[in-house]
């Protein structure tokens, strides 16, 4: 596993690979059920915090 992959997390909303460090530095994270989620941008973060349950539904498909 290289450095990039280690730093990468999946944005639960859009499905993009997000660099954890960069996202954390920009405040693009959210806590849910004790787990930290990382986002590519404000849009995804806000979508997530408004209705987190939606993104844990197995039928939810990330849209780019």
């Amino acid at each position: 596993m290289n450095e990039l992959e280690m730093a990468a997390a999946k944005d639960p909303v859009c499905g993009m690979d997000v660099n954890r460090e960069i996202a954390a530095a920009q405040g693009l994270t959210a806590e849910h059920d004790g787990e930290t989620y990382f986002f590519c941008g404000k849009g995804c973060k806000l979508d997530f915090t408004e209705d987190p349950a939606r993104y844990f539904d197995p039928s939810y498909e990330p849209h780019m």
Partner: peptide, 12 residues
């Protein structure tokens, strides 16, 4: 200003 992905687009 500040959009990063298509989710941002959808949201706006």
């Amino acid at each position: 200003v500040g959009m990063t992905c298509a989710s941002c687009v959808n949201r706006i």
